[in-house]
Write a protein that binds this DNA or RNA. Sequence first.
DNA 1: GTCCAGGGCC
DNA 2: GGCCCTGGAC
Length: 225
Amino acid sequence: MAVRLVHCRDIHRAYRLLHARNGLLGWWPGRTRLEIIVGAILTQNTAWTNVEKAIRALRAARLLSLRGLRSAGLPELEEAIRPSGYFRQKARKLKAFLTCLDDDFGGRLNRMARPATPELRERLLAIWGIGPETADSVLLYAFNRRTFVVDTYTKRVACRHGWIRPNPSYDDLQALFSRHLPEDVPLYNDYHAQMVWVGKHYCRTKPQCEGCPLKPLLLGRPPEA
DNA sequence: GTCCAGGGCC
DNA sequence: GGCCCTGGAC
């Protein structure tokens, strides 16, 4: 299992390298639990700068509250979140979350925070519009659960560095990081933030390894596709 | 003006 | 695999 040991070390080392470069990135951008959840939905397949515009518009329209989201009409919601893209889909997704919250948790986020992590994850995944990444983002950043969030960047970094076989599933990737990292919520929080950072700046669809803090991990090899 | 990046559903 | 969408880069 020499191969796996190398990857285990690299997963730690990658974090140390990124943290040395960036310090703690201080996620999640969101003032309240609800705002974090809304952001997690709006950021699907979308750059965060566009999400910020949508969040600002929601706040300006007084829609960034449970009451506001509940009472908002779909067109009103769509108009506000337009900058985040897929606005018709995402307006329905926000409504779907509210419906679940109201029907299953008495409309209280505090009550949604009660179930153990595996059950809460199932409940979130059952909501239309919430897939694995969004569910795990909500668990980690809104409910402080020790849940590793896998996104496109994390997948790219892991594959290009040969930490996992090509075309891994979401669950395989999550298991890889969960196995190798200590059980530490702040670490999971910052690890994901660092992956997003390195994905945006270096591990893009076209790799830009020059200047990347993770370049030493490649040992001179080219990154795998 | 065209192209690119980015999760989830059907 | 096709569909949903935008702002920013070029």
